[in-house]
C-alpha cells in the first residue's frame, strides 16, 4: 500500500510537469522548443492519438509532454488514455543516443458491464543510432496499471448482485513491451514507425493483440 502511494505521488508530480513521450530524433531536436504529433497506433486496440512536447532549455535535452489517444469505434468518449511525463536524453556516444521515458497514465474503459478508471505508469528506455535525416532505435518498457476503480452497470449486477465497486489495488495489471522504431526526418518534420511485442508482466502470456505498431508524424517548431 505504501509503495503504491509513493508511485501515485510520483505520477501526480510528473503530471504537474505536463509532459509526454513521443518518438524523437534526438539528433535534430536541439534547435526546437515545441513538437506536435499525430499518430495511429495498434496497441491493445486500434487507437488514434495526438501529442505535444516542450523541450526545456536545459543542457541535457529534456522533453515535457502530454498525449491523448482513444480507440477506434462508434463511441469516442467511453474509452481513452492520457499520458503525461518526461523524456530525458542521458547519453550520447558518436551517433548513438540513449534516453528514458517516465509517463503517468490516466485511462478509462467502458462497456455494457463496467466502467474502469485506472492510474498507471509507463516507463521505458530507448537506445539507437541517430543521424540528422534518419534514426533507428530499440525500446524496452513496462506499462503498469497501478490502481483501478471499478463501477459496474445494472446489467452486470443482474448477473452478480454482490459485485463490489470501488478502488482496487495493488496493481490490477501490467504489460512489458519490446520493439524497434525507425524514422525519417526532413525539414522540421519526422515520420516514424514503431513495431514491437507485448507480453503480460508474468512473461507467460500476452494480450489478445500481442504486437504493437505506431505510425506517427512530428512537426517541430519554435526555434531557440
Amino acid at each position: 500500500m505504501k509503495k503504491t502511494h509513493t508511485i501515485v505521488t510520483v505520477i501526480i508530480l510528473l503530471m504537474g510537469l505536463t509532459t509526454n513521450a513521443q518518438t524523437i530524433n534526438w539528433k535534430n531536436i536541439r534547435q526546437y522548443k515545441h513538437i506536435a504529433n499525430v499518430n495511429v497506433t495498434a496497441e491493445y486496440a486500434l487507437n488514434y492519438g495526438v501529442a505535444y512536447s516542450y523541450r526545456l532549455s536545459s543542457k541535457r535535452p529534456i522533453l515535457l509532454s502530454s498525449e491523448y489517444s482513444f480507440p477506434s469505434g462508434n463511441n469516442f468518449t467511453d474509452d481513452f488514455k492520457v499520458k503525461t511525463g518526461t523524456q530525458i536524453h542521458w547519453l550520447q556516444s558518436g551517433n548513438f543516443h540513449f534516453a528514458s521515458k517516465f509517463q503517468g497514465i490516466f485511462r478509462r474503459y467502458q462497456n455494457s458491464y463496467a466502467r474502469l478508471l485506472n492510474f498507471g505508469v509507463d516507463i521505458s528506455a530507448t537506445g539507437g543510432y541517430y543521424k540528422q535525416k534518419w534514426f533507428v532505435a530499440g525500446e524496452l518498457g513496462i506499462d503498469k496499471a497501478i490502481v483501478t476503480h471499478f463501477k459496474h452497470s445494472d446489467l452486470y449486477k443482474e448477473n452478480f448482485p454482490g459485485v463490489r465497486d470501488g478502488w482496487y489495488e495493488p496493481s490490477t495489471g501490467g504489460n512489458i513491451y519490446i520493439g524497434v522504431q525507425a524514422g525519417w526526418s526532413f525539414q522540421n518534420k519526422d515520420l516514424y514507425l514503431k513495431l514491437g511485442k507485448l507480453s503480460q508482466q508474468d512473461l507467460h502470456s500476452s494480450p489478445m493483440l500481442p504486437l504493437y505498431a505506431q505510425l506517427g508524424f512530428n512537426i517541430k517548431f519554435g526555434k531557440r
Binding site: 486500434l46 480507440p71 469505434g73 485511462r107 490490477t172 502470456s205 494480450p207
Partner: peptide, 21 residues
C-alpha cells in the same frame, strides 16, 4: 472489423487487467 467498437472494447481491457494462469 478491426476498427469496430466491439472488437476494440474487447482488446482495450488488456491494459487494465492482467492475470497469471
Amino acid at each position: 472489423r478491426f476498427s469496430s467498437e466491439a472488437l476494440n472494447d474487447a482488446l482495450y481491457a488488456d491494459q487494465f487487467i492482467t492475470g497469471r494462469e
